[in-house]
């Protein structure tokens, strides 16, 4: 083996080892890298009332009620739902049917008390006219 060859194999070997190590670390970390939990996951884990976590899902259509500064809405993952109450400014993209992530904890009555609400936006970009046309043609969000 020439020195060049040896260096190349040494490099490939150490990179491979590193990749395996990284994969192991990442899969171990997997649970902690979860940014939010869906209502179904929350129902399974049933965290205590003081445990803070993030709840993510879609705002259920027709569920948003505003009473002054206080907003009540329901987050759904199309499987289970969870009621949320929030006091404060909502982001621009917050609307019914939109993905949101709320940070807070469960209240005693099973309602999620949010301290912060973030809007998640999807990966679709198009001009308003196209979105309107797609909706009218009934081809909205096909293939999802």
């Amino acid at each position: 083996m020439t020195p060049k060859r040896r260096r190349l194999w040494l490099l490939i070997g150490s990179l491979g080892t590193l990749a395996v190590a990284a994969a192991l670390v990442l899969s171990a970390l997997n649970d902690n890298l979860v940014f939010f939990y869906s209502p179904t996951q929350v129902a399974e884990k049933s965290p205590g009332p003081d445990r803070r976590f993030r709840l993510g899902g879609l705002v259920e259509a027709g569920s948003v009620q505003k009473e002054g500064q206080v907003v009540r809405f329901v987050v759904t993952d199309t499987h289970k739902t969870m009621a949320v109450v929030y006091r404060g400014m909502l982001p621009d993209l917050f609307r019914e049917g939109q993905g949101v992530i709320a940070e807070g904890a469960l209240g005693g009555d099973g309602v999620f008390v949010a301290r912060e609400v973030l809007a998640k936006h999807d990966e679709n970009y198009m001009p308003p006219e196209v979105a309107k046309a797609l909706k009218e043609a009934g081809r909205w969000k096909e293939g999802k």
């Binding site: 990442l26 997997n30 890298l33 940014f35 993510g56 990966e123 679709n124």
Partner: peptide
């Protein structure tokens, strides 16, 4: 794709057609 994130998934570099209308793409 691997984790729940606030950031949305890829729009351009996906296997099917990009999720961006041509006028923006």
């Amino acid at each position: 794709d691997w984790w729940n994130t606030l950031h949305q998934p890829a729009s351009v570099t996906r296997l099917d057609a990009p999720a961006i209308h041509n006028s923006i793409l």
